[in-house]
């Protein structure tokens, strides 16, 4: 286990206004050394703004941020030295080759002069860019540009990686590659990864912070989060028999809250702590119908997220 002894990112009561518009509303969270944390939220939730503050690109309106032990305002340069940043949409100089760009990045980020050449080879190898090293960045496809983006983020071997939507807009194979890369990087580094794709979080992260409309709506380890939210369990059934009658009989079973019928499947919602699968089977057999399939639906992050964010909206 890579449980850290010290917080690598510490955010306290962070608030950011753009003019009058509130983008981040008094959020606090920590990321410990070695953790891979997902920063999850819909577009315009405040993810990018928060990351831009963490990296020192924007100053907060209120609140404090420490990265690698340095305050991002008062000791900005020291803090920035420990950050590798992959900004949203990965902007790069199109008129440079991959090699010259990585050379530029490593110099700017203070990599030791004698290390530059070998380190460029290392990151090119890690990001599978060998064949493109002397190609102009402007001529690369989006997926390869993302890889150059990852390469520049890790070139100075930073303690913290801040990745803003690293898999957006690239093809599925490259998405899988990027996720694999993030997993590997996460073995030795602290990563804060923003995304609006829920499956990405469950695939790559150990912990998730869910943010909506500038506020943190949930924060927990992935496995806890789904049990925390899913008070009720759902079961999907496929039954051969008269649909009206089957639904009616199912509703009468103790512990079943609701039965709906869609796409020739019954979705059964059970009250918390109940598992009426045995009874369902019995009922169907008694009715003389045939049970074709039965499966329980785990509440996905998608559902959790919907639930959390809509609850947040209604409570306002």
């Amino acid at each position: 286990m890579k449980v850290g002894t010290r917080e690598v990112i510490r955010v306290e009561n962070l608030t950011k206004y753009y003019g009058k518009r509130l983008a981040v509303d008094n959020i606090s969270f920590n990321v410990e050394r070695g953790e891979v944390v997902g920063f999850l939220g819909p577009n315009a939730a405040g993810k990018t703004t928060t990351m831009r503050i963490l990296t020192g690109f924007l100053a907060p309106t209120r609140g404090d941020v420490w990265v690698a032990g340095y305050n991002i305002i008062s000791h900005s340069l020291e803090a920035r030295q420990h950050i590798g940043y992959f900004p949203e949409a990965m902007p790069l100089y199109r008129d440079m080759t991959v090699r010259s760009y990585l050379d530029f990045s490593s110099r700017l980020r203070g990599l030791d002069k004698n290390r530059i050449k070998t380190r460029i080879e290392e990151v090119v190898d890690i990001c599978h860019l060998e064949e493109y090293i002397d190609v102009l960045i402007g001529k690369l496809s989006k997926g390869f540009r993302q890889r150059v983006g990852v390469a520049q983020a890790i070139i100075h071997e930073p303690e913290v990686l801040i990745l803003d939507e690293p898999t957006i807009g690239i093809d599925p194979i490259q998405v899988a590659m990027t996720r694999q890369l993030i997993k590997e990087l996460g073995k030795e580094r602290t990563i804060l990864l923003s995304t609006h794709i829920l499956s990405e979080v469950s695939m790559t992260c150990e912990r998730v912070i869910i943010i909506n409309e500038g506020r943190i709506v949930a924060e927990d380890r992935i496995e806890n989060l789904s049990s925390l939210i899913s008070g009720s369990k759902r079961i999907r059934l496929e039954v051969e028999g008269p649909s009206g009658k089957v639904a009616e009989r199912l509703r009468q079973i103790e512990g079943i809250l609701q039965v709906s019928y869609e796409d020739s499947h019954y979705i059964v919602e059970c009250s918390a702590g109940q598992d009426p699968r045995g009874k369902i089977m019995e009922t169907i057999v008694q009715g003389g119908w045939t049970l074709l399939s039965l499966e329980s639906i785990e509440m996905s992050l998608e559902d959790i997220f919907l639930k959390l964010t809509t609850e947040g909206e209604t409570s306002q």
Binding site: E78, Y85, L92, R94, R109, Q152
Partner: peptide, 14 residues
């Protein structure tokens, strides 16, 4: 416009 300023200003450079 291109957004490259973001990487420049988040590098440890004054």
């Amino acid at each position: 416009k291109m957004g490259t300023l973001e990487l420049l200003l988040t590098a440890p450079v004054r």
